[in-house]
């Protein structure tokens, strides 16, 4: 099954929880970093990278000798990626969403496919686990198509063969990148903190992922700071609290030193083993229902 670790607000501890779960799961997992704008999971899991490839998106290029400047493509494009002015056609590949409409409709065959680099996808191993990540090219605006390519790479036998469970470290927010990361998961773990910002963004995330029909549970990180509002919200929304990670300066310092929190002390090891078991139990019936 696929477990997405998401949050709404950034910096609540998604990556810390994903890294800790991956070493506490009890069986092998594929740990996937879908926060392609700012991927961090590799900093903690320190994988041996065994393969990578460029992630490309198909965009149009124009053959001026065939173009009759009919403007069909420019009028069609919702993203203003093609402009025709008199007898000049200009293509802005960075605006293109890769829908392929212009290529299909050009009456003279003047538009042909070329590529824009979105970033790269790389994979490898981390201990007994597999590892997979995407990294957006700096300057590239569109992360969702790269996230889709990372999810497609997950089907490669050298990445996921023989491994039943996948942990997806999602990007922050609740708009298209976060949705793209969560859409194919069986269960969503929402990591939050008990502060006004944390709760407000948790509400947004709950709303966004409920629309997707995803079962969810909450991990409260830095429990003890802020106020109790998060508990009221979870009980009202029917969201189970899967675990509370106490606010502790030692945890913050261990994280800052690049450590996997599940490994820093016996209580933390036990906490993440319990969390893994709780998630497995909550997600299994959800997956059965989804596939029924």
């Amino acid at each position: 099954m696929k477990i997405a670790i998401a949050s709404g607000k950034g910096g609540t501890g998604k990556t810390m929880v994903t890294a800790s779960l991956s070493v506490s799961w009890g069986s092998r997992v594929v740990a996937v970093d879908l926060d392609v704008e700012e991927p961090n999971l590799h900093l903690f899991l320190k994988p041996d990278i065994t393969g990578s490839r460029d992630a490309l998106m198909e965009v149009p290029q124009a053959d001026e000798s065939k173009c009759n400047y009919c403007r069909e493509c420019a009028e069609f494009c919702e993203y203003k990626a093609i402009s025709v002015l008199g007898s000049v056609i200009m293509i802005f590949p960075e605006m293109c969403h890769g829908c392929g409409g212009c290529l299909a409709l050009c009456p003279t065959g003047a538009l042909t496919p070329t590529h824009r680099k979105l970033g790269d996808v790389s994979w490898g191993t981390s201990g007994q686990n597999r590892f997979l990540m995407g990294r957006l090219r700096v300057g590239e605006a569109m992360s969702p198509p790269l996230i889709h390519q990372v999810m497609t790479a997950l089907k490669q036998p050298d990445i996921s063969a023989g491994i039943a469970d996948v942990l997806l470290d999602a990007p922050p927010g609740v708009s298209c990148p976060a949705i793209s990361a969560v859409i194919d998961s069986d269960y969503v773990v929402l990591v939050t903190e008990p502060t006004p910002f944390g709760v407000f963004d948790l509400r947004l995330a709950h709303q966004a992922f409920t629309t997707l029909g995803k079962p969810m549970g909450v991990v409260v990180n830095r429990a003890g700071v802020g106020n109790d509002e998060v508990y009221g919200f979870c009980s009202q929304a029917g969201l189970p609290i899967l675990a509370e990670i106490p606010y502790d300066r030692a945890i913050a310092e261990a994280y800052a030193a690049g450590e996997v929190i599940a490994r820093i002390s016996a209580p933390m090891t036990a906490l993440f083993q319990r969390l893994a078991e709780t998630i497995r139990q909550a997600a299994a019936p959800a997956k059965e229902a989804r596939h029924a």
Binding site: E37, E38, L136, V138, A141, S143, G173, P177
Partner: peptide, 8 residues
């Protein structure tokens, strides 16, 4: 946050 579309 990030470096994608809204940040640009």
């Amino acid at each position: 946050p990030g470096i994608g579309c809204p940040v640009i």
